[in-house]
Amino acid sequence: MNINMTLIGQTIAFAIFVWFCIKYVWPPISNALHERQKKIADGLDAASRASRDLELAQERAEQTLRESKEQASQILEQANKRSSQMIEEAREQARAEGERIVASARAEVEQEVNRAKDELRAQVSRLAVTGAERVLEASIDEKAHRKLLDELAAEL
């Protein structure tokens, strides 16, 4: 076995073959591999993006829920305040009304008492005159003593 030009011929052929592979065989294979890699990367990316979107949406939903809850509690509080205020007002009104009624009743009573007093005075003065007539058996000149009697009645 001796080295001869065959080896060089084969080396030339091999070099051309390798060049051919690099030029025409490798690119489609490499493209297919890259495409596959890219597809996987895109898929993973899309999945992670979707999960992030989901997380965001969940967060937003939670926030909305929290806000609405807060609002609801605020409204409830306001309503409570309003109702207690109304109760207070009503109570105040009722008290004022009561006082007014009491005052008017008192005034009426006073008026009634005064009237009764007047009536009594008049009756007393008449009684006194009648009594005096009976005692004296003489008529008193009513006209002459009118002034005196009125003074007496006023003193009563």
């Binding site: 030009m5 065959t6 060089i8 011929g9 084969q10 030339i12 052929a13 051309i16 073959f17 051919f20």
Partner: peptide, 13 residues
Amino acid sequence: ALLPFWVMWTLNV
């Protein structure tokens, strides 16, 4: 491979 070395590649490749 038995061909002359300068034409070998025409068939080998």
